[in-house]
Design a protein around this nucleic acid. Structure first.
Lengths: 377, 377
DNA sequence: TTGTAGGCGTTATCAT
DNA sequence: ATGATAACGCCTACAA
């Protein structure tokens, strides 16, 4: 291969440690040489006060007041002009120290690479920003210890509230945590010690299974996700409800635990397809795992949906474009994130809240098909 | 007793080593009502000082020191015990105000749902946490205005440094920003005003195109991404280099701009496949767009790789499991994020740094195949 | 080793 | 309306 002109590799010299003191800066900025200080580092209320000839407390008041109906007074406009000229930027830290509120919410979300989690997070971040809050994220591992560590760090940052996403079904510190700072679970819930905003996972599991039953399937495998995630266990509970309703007994060998990622789906799929009497349909409790199942099936020569119906969960955007577009349950991920922020702010505001389960719906595509009835054989 | 790594700041003395539960703690704390204070809300250095019978400055010093080789002295252990009993949690805000350093880095990343972006972010978050830094994210839209707003907010939070991911090729405020706070671009770069950690996109574009040329393709379409993203334009530049090297002229109608998401790929694919003399191979500058191309092709009755070779970019994990596993360029997304943090911390430490372009590699799977030579017709 | 004092930038409570 | 003053919780010379 020919030698290739690679991307630029230039040395970057750091901004020379700023020798200029505040005065110099102020003067410079005043001379419309705003280029040097557009970002207003180090400009404080005191500088503005001096320039406008008022006291800092006055500056503080003026800057945090809306423009009165009859416009700004003489000295008020001087303050505002000075702030603009100096490129003042409030020091939120100092304000927070004083007011004891940070307009920051802490978010603990394991596995942010998972597009499901990422969608929820996008909802959270967007809504929080809209409402003037900032988001401090921590994306710990799936283990309790690092999750607790994340919480500790966020608390020491004095967050106003906490959104926990990937918590285990049973998280020992949840209850006491909730007494310290407004805390809300997102996506998953626990045993009721803490309010939660979720999607209706039991309903989703029921709808998925019911769909397969209606297509005539009787042996339905489940890629269940990990046992400690209520998202997975609730969907499986919905599956069981549907089976019971149809008068079918559950075959425990058809329900296999898995991780939430692609490989989890692959492994679970291989296991399900290699039992003596394999299922004719598989419900994977998330889309990526369903893709893993499809991949495993393909390698085993099992063709979907002819030989095997597969249904996923969440309706992430790529599954509509697969060579076999995936039937799935659509859950309102973004909205769940937004809703979580809304509820959390209610809690922060001291108002009582209730847990919510958002509605889900079945999206039928091509990966599920009627079970060839025995009579046709 | 477990401690958190907390970069020179007050160490959190974990109230519970693993086996103790909250109940134990409450008892330890001595008074029943302190049960509500397991999380140490409102406990300050002063409280510890009073309880240990020393001055707050002593408390501060003791808590921020490692245990000496010959163990703690009497009064030192009293301080530590008091901190543990009261469930002390340092107020990072107050410390930051005083020390003028927050051990927080700001991250501006549009489109965090994109799994490419999410992977980079995961690298950032993980590495930052490991090194005792926290991450304040803002995920603005793709427009300059909200991006600048994000930066403003992060600056007012006094972040120690800034990682900018989705910036436009030309972002007017970058240069002055770099003079105010250590700033590093990730994934994309600009015209050299600001250091950047990227993957070697020109090389990647070259490799992809070279692969298709070697397979005998001569009309190679490009799904180019948006013009303002250096990731896209660099990859296209690599494409051009490869064409030139092979002595081929570029057909401008074969290079179509697109968005980075699935729909962008679908639309660009449809356009490319409906020109009079359609390409026999398509290079999509990211995997999700490549999936869109595959979907569009399928609907048009064009079968990959028989009628059309498709190559993507990034090697996100799902593309290996598609029904036609995707040939692609693998770029080290996680590592890019980690590396970015490392470089940024160098900058924060006042050391000179240089831009880096991480290596990429070609991953050949099934979506590319030799072009049926004209002779065979 | 420990205490004293002052200040980081802001806001709240006074008094004027 | 504005000014003076104190305080938020912590850190760090400096002094003892």
């Amino acid at each position: 291969m020919a030698k290739f002109p690679s991307a630029g590799r230039h040395t970057v010299v750091l901004p020379s440690s700023e020798q200029e003191d505040d005065t110099t800066l102020a003067i410079k900025a005043g001379r419309a040489d705003e280029d040097t200080n557009v970002w207003g580092r180090g400009v404080t209320l005191r500088h503005i006060a001096e320039r406008a000839g008022v006291h800092t407390s006055t500056v503080s008041r003026v800057l945090r007041r809306e423009e009165p109906a009859h416009g700004w007074s003489r000295s008020e406009s001087r303050v505002i002009a000075a702030a603009r000229d100096l490129g003042y930027r409030p020091n939120t830290l100092a304000a927070s120290l004083r007011t004891r509120t940070t307009t920051t919410i802490g978010v603990v979300m394991p596995r942010l690479v998972d597009s499901v989690v990422a969608s929820i997070f996008q909802g959270i971040e967007g809504r929080a920003t809209t409402l003037g809050y900032q988001v401090l994220v921590s994306s710990p591992g799936d283990d309790l210890v690092s999750q607790r560590q994340s919480v500790e760090l966020l608390l020491s940052r004095q967050v106003d509230g906490l959104l926990l996403s990937g918590v285990h079904n049973t998280t020992p510190f949840l209850e006491s945590l909730g007494r310290v700072v407004p805390t809300l679970l997102v996506s998953r819930h626990d045993e009721g010690t803490c309010p939660a905003v979720t999607a209706d996972d039991r309903l989703g599991g029921y709808l998925a299974t019911h769909h397969l039953l209606e297509l005539g399937h009787r042996r339905i495998g489940v890629v269940a996700g990990p046992a400690w995630a209520s998202t997975g266990t609730d969907r499986v509970a919905g599956y069981r409800t549907a089976l019971r309703e149809a008068g079918l007994a559950e075959d425990p060998s058809l329900v296999v635990e898995s991780s939430f990622d692609l490989r989890g789906g692959v492994e679970a799929g291989e296991r399900l397809l290699s039992v003596s009497n394999p299922p004719t349909a598989i419900f994977a409790v998330n889309d990526v795992a369903a893709m893993g199942v499809l991949g495993a099936a393909r390698r085993l020569g099992v063709i979907a949906p002819r030989d095997l119906s597969v249904i996923g969960y969440n309706d992430i955007d790529i599954v509509a474009e697969l060579s076999v577009p995936l039937t799935t349950i659509r859950s309102p991920l973004r909205r769940m994130g937004q809703q979580a922020v809304d509820v959390l702010l209610e809690m922060i505001g001291g108002r009582p809240v209730e847990s919510q389960a958002l509605p889900v719906e079945l999206v039928v595509r091509d990966s599920t098909a009627p079970h060839p009835s025995p009579g046709h054989h």
